[in-house]
Design a protein around this nucleic acid. Structure first.
Lengths: 156, 156
DNA sequence: CTCATCTCAGCAAGACTGAGATGT
DNA sequence: CACATCTCAGTCTTGCTGAGATGA
């Protein structure tokens, strides 16, 4: 789905506006993040491990919304880059416990910066008040009852 | 990308909120539209033909933001359902001119109804004023300078 | 011959499914 | 045994790419 000279019937649909806006933001984010060889999934995984501590792969799957099959490959990549380590759980050896390394923590901080920059780039047509309002509306739309972690903190 | 118990780092990103909102709206739209055997592309094509009149496939590709290769298959499907006809352009026989049929026009009207219903469903957490505000912000975000076809007309 | 248009085959990324291996 | 976790192979969808056919 692209921008283009779409018919007015489409332009009038909120769902279309959301799709276009999301695609635009996604391009900015992908561009920023992929320049460092990472992806959205990488960031989501590192962020989850930073916030919740070591996780098994099933839990990681829940946090990042990625299928369990694909978490296998994701962790392969992260482990190959030494950003995480994958060890068998001594208490239940069916499980692999994924743990953030120091290097992974550094990479996360780096990605935070890239992401923050991508956000301001993607939203540069809106002023600060409008960005706050947009975040508020989207949060309500998604069913957030209250402030889920200082919206605006990453908006420059 | 799904909802889930995502880390706060993700929840704070406007791009993530947009992606989630768009995915949610897309589910509602896909569900509504696919029940009648159609898709977003079908609707976009029918809407373009209704607004701009008969188009060749390259022009159609521009209007609906779909790759030219894929327009071939899309027009195949629409023609098989008798919603459009594909005729060689008598003035330039390299071109196929795609024209909306009466049946296609009826289908478009039917899809309009389904889409309008899906919009209200997707946005039901927002009241009327908030929906108008959201549409305004998204339009600005996408670079719309002014009112592109009465936003709100399909919002119930 | 060069160029535009359409058609087709195939690739690549993402999300998913099903079966098997390992361990409880 | 049933069950959970991880792994692997393969499918499906979407967007794209490249080559060929037709015709200007």
């Amino acid at each position: 789905v692209e921008f283009e000279h779409a018919p007015n019937r489409l332009r009038a649909l909120p769902s279309w506006l959301l799709a276009q806006s999301a695609a635009q933001a996604n391009r900015a984010v992908s561009k920023a993040v992929s320049e460092s060889g990472a992806s959205r999934s990488h960031y989501a995984a590192l962020a989850s491990l930073e916030e919740f501590g070591p996780l098994n792969q099933a839990a990681l799957s829940d946090h990042i919304g990625l299928d369990r099959s694909d978490v296998v490959r994701l962790v392969d990549e992260l482990a190959a880059a030494k950003l995480v380590v994958r060890d068998p759980d001594p208490g239940d050896r069916r499980r692999n416990i994924v743990t953030l390394t120091t290097r992974g923590r550094q990479r996360l901080a780096q990605l935070d910066d890239l992401l923050a920059q991508a956000q301001t780039e993607a939203l540069d047509r809106l002023d600060r008040a409008e960005r706050v309002e947009l975040v508020k509306l989207l949060s309500r739309l998604l069913g957030a009852s209250s402030d889920p972690g200082r919206p605006g903190a990453n908006m420059g």
